[in-house]
């Protein structure tokens, strides 16, 4: 780990500690702790698991079990831009699968994966709440609705252009 990152890491781990000790009841604090770890890093680094294990006296293996049980937790870092494809029912019946394959073709990576250049991560979600615009994807905080497979290239391009 780079020195800078290490310092940042330790500092934020400290924040957890405050967070934890402020909580009067220790009951059920594991999931909120993991959520705040993920908030700080975009994923849950291995060190964080050991650290939380020490604090809560929950064995690291059990924490790992909790992490892998819930879809929200990631053990790998995210790319720069987050693409969320909706695979909810409305989007499914309106052709989400074809949007997904267009995305996979265009990105060269599948769901839960990051492009080689680390620029995009593709995640799948169920219903982002604008079924009337289905099929829908979200890139970071922007919603792109009423999509067709041939529109995907253009959508991604606007983000790629911002890179340069």
């Amino acid at each position: 780990m780079e020195q800078n990152e290490k310092i940042k890491f330790e500092k934020e781990i400290k924040n957890f500690k405050v967070d934890l000790f402020e909580k009067k009841d220790m009951q059920g604090s594991l999931i909120p702790l993991l959520q705040s770890a993920q908030d700080s890093y975009g994923y849950i680094p291995e060190q964080a698991i050991y650290y939380i294990s020490e604090m809560t006296s929950v064995p690291a293996a059990d924490i790992y079990g909790v992490i892998t049980f819930y879809a929200q937790f990631r053990l790998k870092p995210l790319g720069k831009n987050l693409i969320r494809i909706c695979e909810g029912t409305a989007c499914h019946v309106n052709g989400a699968k074809r949007i997904l394959s267009a995305l996979e073709d265009e990105l060269g990576c599948g769901v839960d994966d990051t492009t080689d250049d680390g620029f995009f991560t593709l995640l799948s979600v169920a219903c982002i709440g604008c079924c009337s615009l289905s099929p829908v994807i979200m890139v970071n905080d922007d919603t792109h609705g009423s999509l067709a497979p041939d529109k995907i290239k253009r959508v991604l391009k606007t983000y790629k252009n911002r890179k340069n």
């Binding site: 059920g28 604090s29 594991l30 999931i31 993991l34 049980f69 879809a71 929200q72 937790f73």
Partner: peptide, 25 residues
Amino acid sequence: IKEGAGAFVCGEETALMASIEGKRG
């Protein structure tokens, strides 16, 4: 407020309570 962590089964009441307790749902 407890935020769920993305598991459909946690909508089931006994799994939900396990999840609030910080366990696998």
